[in-house]
């Protein structure tokens, strides 16, 4: 059966890459928004709660956003798994010795693994903060309760490090994949990518420390 041209594009190796890039980049935007929102935690309980209230007052928009995120997550993870499977299959006999020539980074070489970790983390994160009974406790209370546990703090900080590593490869990769590569701008894009991953890592990573120490 002849496939639809669009499906064919999406399932080609570059198509898959494009899907990864577009969904990945959307997650970067989401992370940015999420981080900005979370920064309100530094403003104290009421500041944070007013942000939460505002956010929830958006109503249907939030639901749409959530569905979009879910959809993108399915695509991102699904394509990631497919890529991992196909790429493993493309070299059935492995090298006895594998040495990098210096092209790979920690980020690029661990993408499938950091990805898997983040998938599990996100599920946990959602169960911690999203699928909880918010009738009895405010979300602020839930956050502070969980982050009073030093194990959780350590885990969250670690997870944010993993996010930073994942994003460090993902960010510039988006531009490479979309063909937005220019000798003049590429170094800048790479630097922005590194800066972005550090900001995301530190920005999110500091919150648990702050909460556990000061809240």
């Amino acid at each position: 059966m002849k496939k639809n041209w669009f499906v064919e594009i999406l399932l080609s190796s570059i198509g898959k890459k494009l899907l990864m890039a577009i969904t990945g980049f959307s997650f970067c935007l989401f992370l940015t928004a999420h981080l900005i929102g979370n920064l309100t935690l530094y403003g104290g309980k009421f500041f944070f709660l007013s942000y939460v209230t505002r956010l929830h007052s958006l109503g249907i928009i939030i639901n749409i956003a959530e569905i979009c995120l879910l959809f993108m997550a399915i695509v991102h993870i699904g394509m990631g798994c497919l890529l991992f499977y196909e790429n493993t299959k493309a070299r059935p006999i492995k090298y006895a010795i594998k040495v990098s020539g210096g092209g790979r980074t920690i980020g690029s070489s661990t993408m499938p693994y950091t990805g898997l970790f983040l998938f599990l983390f996100i599920i946990m994160h959602l169960f911690n903060f999203h699928f909880v009974d918010k009738g009895e406790k405010t979300i602020y209370k839930i956050v502070t309760d969980i982050l009073s546990n030093p194990f959780y703090v350590a885990f969250y900080i670690f997870a944010m490090g993993v996010v930073a590593i994942h994003v460090s490869h993902g960010f510039w990769s988006v531009f490479q994949t979309l063909g937005l590569n220019h000798p003049k701008y590429m170094p800048l894009i790479k630097n922005i990518g590194i800066a972005f991953s550090i900001i995301i890592g530190i920005g999110f990573g500091f919150i648990p420390i702050y909460i556990s120490l000061f809240a």
Binding site: S13, N87, K89, S108, H169, Q176
Partner: peptide
Amino acid sequence: ADNIGFGNCTNEKECEVT
């Protein structure tokens, strides 16, 4: 390239340095 069974590029840059 896909049909032949080459893998997918994930921007690892190993090719460039090799």
